[in-house]
């Protein structure tokens, strides 16, 4: 029995140490943005929403322009994870450091996160995906994150760096895209993306639960500071599709936010995107400046 327990413990211990060490050393050196954001410390202020915000709103610019008391962290994820529902609200609360009432929350509203496939209307599929599925965030190495069905395409993200990554996450959580895009590549990306979204357009319906949970999220965050909703600029093709899907989306957002809605869809012609969905890195600072100015105006600073 002694030999059995000894070997079993040895196997378990070596396995745990090796995995832990590996994750600790390598899991943050590349671009698994989700992991890096999950293990970050708690913050008082946040940028929330989809990848449009994750790539397109720079926390440092906001801090500089708004003279913020607390650091603001970009805790935005992909559109299928950052969906307004009970599990995402819980994930946000777990990351929230309750400072005082001077925090700032910028919530980017991606129209597509309010639409679901009819087969998914009775469930919240995002609850099985990180950050929503993580019970113990803010810890590194985080075994829970990797044991939740870590999918194969992400494996390369935890293999030692070759220095040729196309993106990284900066210290305040923004995903910085370093890849260069020429006009041919952009056209091609937009074409592919529009095909995907056209399919999506035909298969989704309005999900009222998402609006309700966005309101709940705003109500919760309002206890700690000011909350603003933002609609990011996209490519014209995407905007046309979105307007067709939800022509009254802006009015709804304005109502939910009690008028604190910064609508940048009118800038869709001004800023070029990499794929119809995300603005290019070179425009991030100026778009963030516009958001900061709007916040300043609304707060009458």
């Amino acid at each position: 029995m002694g030999r059995f327990l000894f070997k079993l413990s040895l196997f378990g211990t070596i396995f745990t140490i090796l995995c832990g060490l590996y994750i600790y050393l390598f899991a943050t050196n590349k671009s698994d943005t989700i992991y890096i954001k999950i293990i970050s410390p708690k913050y008082c202020s946040f940028i929330l929403g989809s990848s449009r915000a994750s790539q397109g709103i720079e926390p440092l610019v906001l801090m500089k322009n708004l003279n913020l008391k607390h650091e603001i962290y970009n805790y935005a994820f992909t559109v299928n994870r950052a969906v307004w529902g009970p599990s995402h609200l819980k994930a946000i609360k777990k990351k929230l450091k309750k400072c005082d009432t001077s925090a700032l929350f910028i919530i980017e509203c991606n129209l597509w996160s309010f639409y679901s496939k009819s087969s998914k209307l009775n469930s919240f599929p995002e609850e099985n995906a990180p950050p929503n599925s993580i019970v113990f965030p803010n810890i590194h190495p985080n075994f829970e994150y990797f044991s939740g069905g870590y999918d194969f395409p992400n494996l390369h993200l935890i293999i030692p760096s070759d220095g040729k990554e196309n993106s990284y996450v900066n210290e305040l959580g923004r995903m910085v895209i370093t890849k260069k895009f020429d006009s041919t590549l952009i056209d091609q990306n937009i074409k592919t993306k529009m095909k995907t979204y056209a399919n999506k357009f035909n298969s989704v319906i309005k999900d009222e639960r998402r609006f309700k949970y966005l309101s709940e999220t705003i109500a919760e965050l309002s206890k700690y500071g000011e909350v603003f909703l933002v609609r990011m600029p996209v490519a014209n093709e995407m905007l046309v599709l979105e307007e067709e899907l939800a022509p009254k989306f802006d009015e709804r957002m304005k109502a939910i936010s009690n008028g604190r809605y910064i609508n940048l869809k009118y800038l869709s012609n001004t800023y070029i995107t990499t794929d119809g969905n995300h603005i290019q890195n070179k425009y991030v600072d100026s778009v963030t400046c516009i958001i900061a100015d709007s916040v300043n105006i609304q707060l009458k600073r």
Partner: peptide, 8 residues
Amino acid sequence: IFLLGRFN
């Protein structure tokens, strides 16, 4: 099992 298993 650890990386790819689904424990839901």
